[in-house]
Amino acid sequence: MKETFVAIAIVLCISLFCIFASSYTANTFTETQIQLDACIKSVYSENWEKAEAELDSIRSSFNKHDAILRILSNHRELDEIERGILKTASAIELENKDRCINELVSIAGIMRQIKDLEKITVANIL
């Protein structure tokens, strides 16, 4: 009987961990997505100083969550986001609008992909 309770406790812990993983990823990336949108808007209007500030806040917010995200998500995708942020930084410095938009959109795409994969849906399960 004791073992059964341990098993039920394990199942409950795993379920709670999965719910935490899903909501943490969703919240983090939704928050970053808003910052990305703001950054894209600044790049469109060629306000480079504001875009740089927005990118800094994206970077610091991503770095803040990086350790936990690495426990929950595939490291390769997180590395791609990091690389994308670095490329955007250099594109902002060069004031290259097209490259900036391109990188920011691809970062947003990877984030959306990670967020979608963590969702508990029939499509993801199957």
């Binding site: 009987m1 073992e3 059964t4 341990v6 098993a7 039920i8 394990i10 199942v11 795993i14 961990f17 999965c18 993983a21 690495r70 426990i71 929950l72 998500s73 595939n74 490291h75 390769r76």
Partner: peptide, 25 residues
Amino acid sequence: NPDAPLAYGIIPVLTLLALEILISS
């Protein structure tokens, strides 16, 4: 595979352990 989080191995193993205990009960 260093790209995969450790949780990808731990969670299935613990799930199987829990299932095994529940099924044997």
